[in-house]
Write a protein that binds this DNA or RNA. Structure first.
Lengths: 215, 215
DNA sequence: CTTTCAATCACGTAAACGCGCCATTTTTGC
DNA sequence: GCAAAAATGGCGCGTTTACGTGATTGAAAG
């Protein structure tokens, strides 16, 4: 443990909220917020020009100009080690999804009491993620939606093996050579695959395999 | 609010832990655990035969026979309204990923104190998700890995359009008909796509398009 | 014990494919 | 205004594919 305080950078366009939050953070003995900005552009250019390297970035989504989600990739580039915590009134799935995909470590709602925000910062510093249980639930739901149940077409092992090689773009001849079979046998397996997947072209088979995670 | 207690079903092969947990749950005034099983098979058949409809299922992953992850789809089918909370010693990414994709609402480690487990059950009942912050962090990381930045091969609009049709499994002739072009033109576009994607077969192009989200 | 099914191999054919090589026109960017 | 890039169209050739129509073997299931 060093004596250094944790350096927090804040990007938030609402002036009163920004000042309140800065004060609350600075009243904490191990947290420090020296840099607070009202737009993503200001924050990013300050980071770049003054070489800031915050430990944590608290980021609003509803910013004028560049919004918070768009800002995340730039932050990741300028200070890859910084943890980003989204702090917003928008709790719709789309924003949550985009923020999480872009690399946020936390997603807090502004109506959370200041102590919760401080606690979340500490959790993130300890390597955790900060979200309330309802946001967490949304994240899990998003996951489940993305992870459509892998289709099941009763492919045999051999068929799956050959389907994988088809996805790799190999021809019958190449597949036959790869697994030491006759081209005719490979052909036969491919026919069975087509029949089970109900397709008539290689492309459709490959597309179906990838879309429905058959491998 | 009904006077009914929340019905919790437990599947856990470790007898002592199972009994401890059952006792702790039943000592809670609004929770009830009447059904505890030592295997997924026992639990599932009891649900099916006796028509159980638990509100929450606490599910171990490291079960003999069918494991917890495999069990989830069956639970979803037999009692679609039940919330599933994974309770396990395994906190590796693969298990977390599979459990979350399969539809778990929570992921707890067995070393959590019983009070935490009770609290998590309450959170899930309130529509939240139950995980500690480190598990949550892993989930977010998984998200970010899945959301790899879409590849960029400078495909033109026309090329993207045709690539989409290739993914749909259409032949040159069908594509030409679909967008009112000569087969030769389509052929020409396909060549350019191959060249940009650095592939030489339709399958590889389709695979690359889907794997790297080029559409 | 027989039937089903996976896995293996075979021949032939019409259609589709990948590619070399080429030309014209339109759009885009400096 | 001009060069680069994109979009369009064309011919030919050797290869590959999809599919019809078979066969044999061995293992699993009834």
């Amino acid at each position: 443990m060093t004596a250094e305080k944790t350096d927090i950078l804040l990007i938030e366009d609402h002036a009163i909220f920004r000042k309140t939050l800065t004060r609350v953070i600075n009243s904490h003995e191990r947290l420090s917020c020296e840099n607070a900005f009202s737009s993503a552009e200001d924050g990013l250019s300050a980071i770049e020009i003054r070489g800031l390297a915050p430990d944590i970035v608290l980021l609003d989504i509803g910013l004028p100009g560049m919004n918070g989600v768009q800002c995340i990739p730039h932050l990741k580039r300028l200070c890859p080690d910084a943890r980003i915590i989204i702090l917003t009134i928008h709790d719709d799935d789309d924003n949550i999804f985009k923020a999480v995909c872009a690399g946020a470590s936390g997603y807090l709602l502004k109506d959370a009491p200041p102590e919760d925000i401080i606690e979340s910062i500490e959790l993130v510093l300890q390597g955790g993620a900060a979200m309330n249980t309802h946001i967490a639930r949304r994240v899990l739901n998003l996951f489940q939606e993305m992870a459509a149940p892998p289709g099941d077409y009763d492919l045999t092992n051999r068929e799956q093996e050959i389907l994988r090689l088809l996805v790799d773009g190999l021809s019958k001849k190449q597949i036959a050579a790869q697994i030491n079979l006759s081209q005719h046998t490979v052909d036969s397996h491919i026919r069975n695959i087509y029949s089970k997947l109900e397709v008539h072209t290689r492309s459709s088979a490959v597309a179906k395999a990838l879309k429905e995670r058959l491998l």
